[in-house]
């Protein structure tokens, strides 16, 4: 229990120092840009693939269920769009990005730690907060919402393909339902993605810097980072949704 509180305290300090460093110290923009490209390159194909198939299976389920109850497919676009933009887009994308970019990040920082590259930073006029954490925090904060938008779009298009080709659902009706989505609905999903981005990068960086031991330690830290991030995303999602709904953001 004591260990948990020490770890939690250290993690909070890392978060606080990183956020204050963003506003008080020189930002390594080259590294930040590199990280944005890296996260995008690593995750975009997966995010699009997962988004598209989620949209497709969702359209299929809604269509077939509505056929079995009402003898015709109804509200495919509407139910798909809301589910995707409010929940599935941000949550699934965050889970995918955790497994791809978050894991890679922990492994990279963990390797730097066990090979003394982190120690080397201190004697070269730098330190891990400004050289490693800040660029990655900014990169995640920028990249994840964009990836969520890609997931939303690919999901909607995937759903459209199944709705039209498999269920014979009219395209015009599908789009009409999609157009009922308001700015507030989109902002609900995007706001969530900002919070999830901070969670993933915080957990990934902290587990990386706390890595001990050699290759085995890096493996353990990476696994821990992914598991903790996934649990936190799902738990936070509930409380975040409640909060956003209480502010009427839906």
């Amino acid at each position: 229990m004591k260990k948990f509180f020490i770890n939690f305290g250290n993690a909070v300090m890392v978060f606080y120092k990183t956020i204050t460093s963003i506003f008080t110290k020189r930002i390594e923009w080259d590294t930040t840009l590199e990280q944005i490209v890296k996260i995008g390159n690593e995750s975009l194909p997966l995010v699009i693939l997962c988004g598209a198939f989620t949209g497709m299976v969702f359209a299929l389920q809604v269509g077939e269920t509505s056929i079995s109850i009402f003898n015709e497919p109804i509200y495919i676009g509407l139910s798909l769009a809301y589910s995707l933009v409010l929940e599935l887009g941000p949550v699934l994308t965050s889970l995918v990005v955790t497994g791809r970019a978050g894991a890679a990040m922990t492994a990279e920082i963990g390797t730097m730690k066990v090979t003394e590259q982190i120690d080397a930073l201190y004697t070269l006029g730098s330190e891990p907060i400004s050289y490693i954490f800040v660029p990655r925090f900014i990169a995640f904060f920028v990249s994840l919402p964009i990836l969520v938008l890609f997931a939303d779009c690919s999901g909607i298009l995937g759903g459209l393909v199944v709705a039209k080709l498999k269920l014979g659902y009219p395209i015009s009706k599908y789009w009409e339902e999609i157009r009922t989505l308001g700015i507030s609905t989109f902002s609900h999903g995007i706001l969530k993605s900002f919070v999830f981005a901070l969670l993933i990068v915080w957990i990934a960086c902290y587990n990386g810097i706390e890595t001990k031991g050699g290759a085995e330690g890096v493996g353990k830290a990476t696994t821990k980072s992914v598991v903790v991030s996934m649990v936190f995303i799902l738990v936070t999602d509930y409380f975040l949704t409640s909060l956003l709904l209480s502010f009427g953001i839906v």
């Binding site: 730097m112 090979t115 003394e116 590259q117 120690d119 080397a120 004697t123 006029g125 730098s126």
Partner: peptide
């Protein structure tokens, strides 16, 4: 700490950077 230079046992070169970037880092 900037008064110190350190040659680490495993060299601790930044493996995401090339030789030039490593030497130019400080």
């Amino acid at each position: 700490q900037t008064k110190f230079g350190m040659l680490f046992q495993g060299a601790a070169l930044f493996d995401s950077l090339n030789v030039y970037e490593n030497v130019a880092f400080g």
